[in-house]
Design a binder for these strands. Structure first.
Length: 914
RNA sequence: GGGCCUAUAGCUCAGUAGGUUAGAGCGCACCCCUGAUAAGGGUGAGGUGGUUGGUUCGAUUCCAACUAGGCCCA
């Protein structure tokens, strides 16, 4: 019976478990961070270091519902950046925030109120909204914390706090004071039955039957066309005859071809393609009398069919030829596209329809009439005037009120705007865009073209849950009251009592004894609208960066999904520009959206949604974090079961590499063995330096998927399959305190320590867990230490080249071994002896490594024989290793059996003897 | 319909300022080991580079169109 020599080996030993069990272990680590105030210590330390700072300003998610995978992606990306920069010694306080006001919450509250919602007083309703937001802030906070995101979670910024609301009021009033804010008209969805404006989200589409009519507008400047005394009529098609009284223009497409066609009702002007639409409706001669481009028609005057007014022809790109006549009737007060055309041509935003859907007094024939009822009367009038070309019915998808289910209308109402023209706001915004670094670079194009063509910012909403527009308007002359003292007073009030105060106090209490600056009247109206929530979050730079003394203005970085080019990046830019004249950020980084394995968006209806909570439960938050790092966020980010399973494999590899490293330094003495390194150890140190360099560069450039790939490759290729495999013999069989083994342990220690730090911004939980198993660590948490420094002393091009060659030879040896293994000639590679027949230069190259080659190949013996070869540089032959297997180190040696202990080779014999 | 973006092996990513057989890791298949063991090692098979045209002696790399997908608008 051979003695059990296993006991005499130095086998790996660690409490760092192989099985991660993240879903159970992560909460313990969270607890460790919390109890030991690791985040607070990190902030204190770095502030004291005085090495500079990196402020990533959190964009506030909406406080509604649980977090989804997109939230997780966003916050983890931020966390990776903040943690990495913190670990380079920079001061990086992260203050998370929430966006609290706005329609979605108000609608949820309305829903829960049911029928009572009409009766409940605004303050009560706002209270319910506040409670609703608070509830979800707490939920989301826990969920973000669970992901391992570091930050001031106990002291976030909240857009409904008194402080924040006061900033909103102040910033808004500053815009007012500086002359940016004006009142204007803009069409909104309006329900005449509920007498209220509706948001897009409150509109449902349903089938509706409407009249379908072709109407003629007589051309005044008919001498511009080749006609003989005949009248010419421009024909439009509409399904809303009631908007005709508000008609102010006719739109054609500048590039389309328009023709004059002879019909039973005179010569009409339509787009060429529309002949087919009309030929079965009226008698017409398909051969045109003349043909002109749409652009030729611009400026042509026509007579309104029944109002004493001129309608000019304008051009617009949205005109289509599918249905109708290719000429669109424009009522700027009753349609979005019409509105924009109206702005472009300076037309009045005219909507002579009241709250209840009745024509106002100024409308001839139909004043006081309900607009839908008036439809048929308008048709009758057109018929009477001989200007109705054709009449029919159409069933189409039409917007309806989601509450009363009745058809809604587009109606221009008075709104508050920020002018993009005032003080060259638009141009200044464009200039600032060019001073910001956009990642990826095309973000610049995107926001630039949006700002270039965006309309004035409509700030007002006819709603309850938001910050009020704190203005007073003179009842008599409509002048807005602008008074610094008054503005300061309002701001103070909001700071003390919250913006509820605007609704709670009467006009008289808010505004004692003022007279209009223009007409002297003492009667004012308190504005009832609230501010667009984009204004709320747009001023976060002032409410957070500026007010919080831990932070500073401007931010180094804003980081959000690419949808925010239209949203927060833009609102922040404008808000900041109006009052500070500069962009509030230096770098803006955007990421794509999460999609499924096929690249399709995640949606309930497709059933392809993967929730972060699910992954945390099944795999752990570190797997979510690893996913965030592994994917290139600039594109859409895919997530699927397969991706998760690949990532879990990769995670295990990294974890096991760490475990093996830790397992082999269990008895390390912590001394410096850097002068005892073998060449392979120097190679390992070189590879580590390369990794450190590559990973830090990737972090600096925000290319986290490069971090992941570099680390994974290092673990798999350089460590597991090469260095660690070769090292086993030395670590296990050499004398425990021999300088060779200690040197190896020293290297493993360097690798372990560096690797843990390098992964910590991504695999935060695992890194902390491993750190706690690392002996001789300098800090109580990995996050309190700094990123490893690249030690250039280990960079050695010659050594690197030599080892590349050695590895190539090793690959050839492995191929030869594999053939023999498949032939069942050998099993374990230690059963083999390698014979390398080589040309002279290779012989010379290998000479210094003769003794090392068996270790390198993990075989028992290697013979190198000079040979004259024609093609190849060398040939490899495999024989059975000579001698017997040493029962301790498993190497074969002719000396086994020749010693005092016959089971052992000389090396093991001496180790045991001493 | 418009603006911006993406499209390389089953998966995640490299790469070519246009030039011989397009790389890595994972996964997969087969084999070995049982002293990292719900681990470890080895070998191997996988790509008409979304499609179609164009420029060029030559395109995965440049250009255009199309298709599919994403974000934002309409």
């Amino acid at each position: 019976m051979p003695e059990d020599y296993k006991e005499t080996l130095n086998l790996p030993n660690t409490n760092f478990p192989m099985k991660a069990n993240l879903s159970e272990r992560e909460p313990l680590i969270l607890n460790f961070w919390k109890e030991n105030k690791i985040y607070e210590k990190l902030q204190q330390n770095n502030r004291a270091k005085n090495k500079g700072q990196f402020i990533l300003h959190d964009g506030p998610p909406y406080a509604n519902g649980h977090i989804h995978i997109g939230h997780a992606l966003n916050k983890i990306l931020k966390d990776i950046i903040v943690k990495y920069h913190s670990m380079t010694g920079l001061y990086c306080p992260f203050v998370p925030g929430w966006d609290c006001h706005g329609l979605p919450i108000e609608l949820q509250v309305d829903k829960s109120l049911g029928k009572d919602k009409e009766k409940v007083d605004i303050l009560k309703k706002r209270q319910l909204c506040r409670e609703y937001a608070e509830k979800f802030i707490n939920i989301q906070r826990d969920e973000f914390v669970r992901l391992g995101v570091f930050g001031y979670w106990d002291n976030p910024y909240i857009t409904m706090s008194n402080d924040y609301e006061a900033t909103i009021v102040r910033e808004f009033l500053t815009f007012v004071k500086n002359g940016y804010v004006y009142r204007g008209k803009k069409p909104v969805y309006w329900c005449p039955s509920c007498v209220t404006a509706l948001a897009d989200a409150e509109v449902e589409y349903a089938e509706k039957e409407s009249p379908s009519i072709f109407v003629s507008f007589e051309v005044i400047d008919k001498d511009r066309f080749p006609l003989k005394d005949q009248s010419l009529y421009v024909v439009i098609w509409t399904t809303t005859p009631w908007t005709l009284p508000a008609n102010l223009a006719l739109a054609v497409h500048p590039d389309f071809d328009y023709v004059g066609i002879k019909t039973s009702k005179g010569v009409i002007l339509i787009v060429k393609e529309a002949i087919k639409n009309l030929k079965d409706k009226i008698e017409l001669d398909e051969k045109p009398i003349f043909e002109v481009k749409g652009s030729y028609l611009e400026g042509i005057k026509t007579k309104h069919p029944f109002v004493d007014r001129v309608s000019k022809i304008v051009t617009a790109d949205f005109v289509e030829t599918g249905e109708g006549s290719g000429i669109v009737h424009i009522a700027p007060g009753h349609g979005m596209e019409d509105y924009e055309v109206g702005l472009k041509y300076g037309l009045e935003i005219y909507a002579p329809v009241d709250d209840r859907g009745k024509f106002t007094e100024e409308v001839t024939y139909f004043a006081g009439q309900n607009i839908f009822v008036a439809n048929s009367q308008i048709i009758d009038l057109l018929k009477e005037k001989g200007l109705l070309l054709w009449e029919g019915k159409v069933t189409h998808s039409y917007p309806h009120c989601w509450r009363c289910k009745k058809p809604v209308i587009f109606r221009a109402t008075t709104q508050w705007f920020i002018s993009m023209k005032h003080e060259n706001l638009r141009e200044r915004a464009l200039e600032e865009i060019d001073k910001v670094r956009w990642i990826p670079h095309w973000g610049r194009e995107r926001i630039y073209s949006m700002v270039e063509r965006r309309p004035d910012w409509c700030l007002s909403r006819q709603r309850s849950w938001g910050v009020p527009i704190t203005l007073f308007v003179c009842k008599k002359c409509e002048q807005v009251l602008i008074d610094e003292t008054l503005f300061n007073k309002i701001e103070k009030l909001v700071e003390q009592e919250g913006s509820d105060v605007w609704f709670r106090l009467d006009l008289e209490e808010l505004l004692p004894d003022y007279s209009c600056q223009k007409c002297g009247s003492k009667e004012f109206q308190k504005e009832k609208d609230i501010l667009d929530v984009w204004f709320d979050s747009g001023v976060s730079h002032a409410a957070v960066l500026e007010k919080n003394k831990d932070l500073s203005w401007p931010a180094d970085m804003y980081l959000e999904g690419s949808d925010q080019h239209r949203g927060w990046f833009q609102s922040s830019l404008i808000a900041s520009l109006g009052n500070k004249g500069k962009a509030p950020y230096r770098i803006v980084l955007t990421h794509g959206f999460t999609v499924d394995g096929q690249g399709r968006k995640m949606s309930k209806s497709l059933g392809n949604v993967i929730a972060p909570q699910e992954i945390i439960k099944g795999n752990g938050a570190d797997i979510v974090r690893l996913w965030v790092s592994a994917e290139d966020y600039r594109d859409d980010i895919k997530l699927s079961k397969e991706i998760l399973s690949r990532l879990t494999e990769a995670y295990r590899k990294i974890r096991n590499t760490l475990r093996y490293l830790l397992g082999n330094i269990y008895d390390f003495d912590g001394k410096d063995y850097s002068h005892n390194l073998l060449e392979i150890d120097k190679w390992a140190m070189l590879k580590l330096q390369k990794l450190i360099g590559k990973v830090k560069k990737a972090y600096e450039e925000f290319e986290f998927h490069q971090v992941f790939h570099a680390i994974h490759n290092f673990c798999v290729t350089d460590m597991s399959a090469f260095y660690l495999d070769i090292l086993k013999d030395r670590l296990y069989t050499f004398k425990a305190d021999s300088s060779e083994r200690r040197a190896a342990q020293w290297v493993l220690y360097q690798i372990a320590e560096s690797l843990i730090k390098l992964i910590s911004p991504i695999l935060s939980f695992t890194a902390e867990e491993a750190w706690q198993h690392l002996p001789f660590k300098k800090t109580e948490s990995v996050f309190l230490d700094e990123m490893p420094e690249l030690d250039k002393g280990y960079l050695d091009d010659d050594l690197e080249k030599r080892w590349e060659r050695l590895i190539e030879i090793r690959d050839e040896v492995n191929k030869a071994l594999e053939i023999k293994r498949q032939e069942k000639f050998i099993g374990n590679s230690l059963e083999a002896k390698i014979i390398i027949k080589a040309k002279d230069d290779l012989i010379q190259f290998l000479k210094p490594y003769y003794e090392f080659l068996p270790t390198l190949f993990i075989v028992s013996q290697v013979d190198v024989i000079p040979e004259h070869l024609e093609k190849e540089e060398f040939i490899i032959e495999i024989e059975k290793a000579e001698g017997q297997k040493c029962q301790r180190c498993w190497n074969y040696s002719p000396m086994v059996g020749a010693l005092e202990i016959p089971q052992l080779c000389p090396r093991c014999y001496h180790v045991l003897k001493s």
